[in-house]
Write a protein that binds this DNA or RNA. Structure first.
Length: 164
DNA sequence: GCCAACGTTGGC
DNA sequence: GCCAACGTTGGC
């Protein structure tokens, strides 16, 4: 056992993804075919690198940015590993990247699926009141990263806050 | 490799 | 609409 080539199931990881609800909300996700969407349009290397680390089954906090109030709206999960984002090659797309080489695509996306919507969204202000969440990337000053890791204990605490 | 200029994010 | 914080670009 435990040979070098033995594929060991990795423990589930947790993430947070931001979306402006006026562009794509958690309700839009729930209303999508198979309640699934491709997370295209990410054009930040750090965010892309986090998506590359994602695996099916990983859990995602779906965050509404530029919203009133900004809040975690619910949960989604990764259903497909990172693969090339076709919008980078689409001249008509706002996320078109002329510098990306089709032979070595620069940008990738994952597919995510709706899991549930919180009965009560967890507002940013509310999250800031929680000492257990002090370390969250989301709460760091000036944090703009649209795809970010969430620690397991942060995830568990948020689940407690969200109720069921 | 530095850094000023510029564009974007996102809370307020 | 403002603007701080951040990432990227490009001249040098």
């Amino acid at each position: 056992m435990a040979g070098r080539d033995t594929k060991k199931a990795r423990t589930r990881r947790y993430w947070l993804m931001k979306s402006e609800p006026s562009v794509f909300s958690i309700d839009d996700l729930a209303a999508s075919p198979k309640q699934t969407t491709s997370w295209d349009g990410v054009r930040n290397y750090q965010a892309r690198n986090f998506m590359r680390e994602m695996e099916p089954g990983d859990q995602i906090l779906f965050y509404h940015s530029n919203a009133d109030p900004p809040a975690i709206a619910g949960i989604a999960e990764v259903v497909k590993q990172a693969y090339p984002d076709p919008t980078q090659f689409d001249k008509k797309d706002t996320h078109y990247d002329p510098a990306s080489d089709p032979g070595a695509p620069r940008w990738e996306m994952v597919d995510i699926k709706f899991v549930r919507k919180f009965t009560q969204p967890l507002a940013l202000d509310r999250l800031r009141e929680e000492s257990q969440l002090k370390g969250m990337v989301l709460l760091r000053k000036g944090s703009r990263l649209s795809v970010q890791p969430v620690a397991e204990k942060e995830w568990n605490h948020i689940m407690k806050l969200a109720g069921r």
